[in-house]
């Protein structure tokens, strides 16, 4: 009988021990002070970390702070007085333009950035010649590392897309995949994303959409889907808008039922819409675009 090599058994045993050691080190030394994955078993931790852009984002932020040289002399106090309020909000338009009648061609210079719900809109309810940079599972944390393509452009990153093409209006519809994270971290990453978009497209109006509600049963399935949590995040998102070049629209004013949830007859899994739901959503975006008073 041919002798059976020890390769497989040895490889599995040794690699398992190594992964366990790495996991234990990450869990107890690196991630514990940050309160990341406190409940996870050590075998899962390395893999979770690899896949979790939010945790990586926090880790990178911590590492960057540590890398900064420690101040050798007292820091110069900031020159502007922080308490002085600006007399006039700088971005507020001086006079409010009238509500305009919006047709589908209004969307010809629009880019939608979003997760699987936007993928649904892209596949079942395109608006005019709008373009869609969206991907299933996109989060605020991984938006900048996500590759996506649409009918007018090959798979690319958001940064490349915004460098190569220009848009008059950019909708951002993200956040449902991030709602389990601390709100401060989440809003930080939202601000990073806005900074990127603004830097590449200084003249476009950015429209932030609230996180769309989930159904009642979905909301009960996990604390982070609860309406209290989602509404609290939406308030923070709304605060990112300035009424000028960054706007906020609340989709839940339209879609949510009287209890604030996504109606059951619009969804199969409590989160995604049926095809006609995407069409209705797109129609709502079209109908409400006039209120934005953007030509």
């Amino acid at each position: 009988m041919k002798k059976i090599p020890l390769t497989l058994v040895c490889m599995i045993v040794i690699s398992s021990v190594l992964v366990a050691c790495l996991g234990a080190y990450l869990k107890y030394e690196v991630l514990k002070p940050l309160d990341i994955f406190p409940e996870e078993n050590i075998m899962s931790v390395p893999f979770k970390l690899l896949a979790d852009h939010g945790a990586m984002y926090t880790l990178r932020a911590v590492a960057q702070e540590e890398l900064l040289p420690p101040p050798t002399e007292p820091l110069v106090p900031p020159t502007q007085a922080p308490t002085e309020p600006p007399t006039v909000p700088p971005t507020e338009p001086p006079t409010e333009p009238p509500v305009i009648e919006v047709e589908e061609s209004w969307f010809d210079d629009v880019l939608f950035i979003g997760d699987s719900r936007t993928v649904g809109m892209r596949d079942y309810a395109r608006l005019g010649n709008a373009e869609y940079f969206c991907s299933v599972g996109m989060t605020l944390f991984n938006a900048e590392n996500t590759w996506a393509g649409d009918k007018n452009f090959q798979s690319t990153t958001l940064e490349n897309l915004l460098t190569e093409r220009s848009y008059g209006k950019i909708y951002i519809i993200l956040g449902i995949n991030d709602c389990g994270y601390p709100h401060d971290t989440l809003i930080d990453s939202y601000e990073d994303l806005l900074k990127l978009v603004r830097e590449k497209q200084p003249d476009s109006v950015i429209i932030l959409q609230s996180i769309m509600a989930v159904s009642k049963s979905k909301a009960r399935s996990a604390w982070y889907f609860g309406m209290d949590n989602i509404n609290a995040i939406n308030e923070r998102i709304a605060a990112l808008a300035d009424g000028g070049m960054i706007r906020y629209v609340d989709v839940n004013e339209w879609i949510a039922n009287e209890d604030g949830y996504l109606p059951n007859d619009m969804t199969g899994d409590g989160c995604h819409l049926f095809a006609d739901g995407y069409q209705a959503w797109a129609q709502w975006i079209l109908d409400s675009a006039g209120d934005l008073r953007i030509p």
Binding site: I36, K48, L50, A55, V136, G137, N177, Y181, A222
Partner: peptide, 28 residues
């Protein structure tokens, strides 16, 4: 053996990351 080794860890990766967890849910 090498092939199975790779498949094993690929499967473990998916098992570890697909769990119901507030910090990671791929499906949306």
């Amino acid at each position: 053996d090498v092939m199975l080794f790779v498949l094993f860890w690929a499967a473990v990766y998916l098992i570890a990351t697909a769990a119901q967890d507030p910090f990671l849910y791929f499906q949306y």
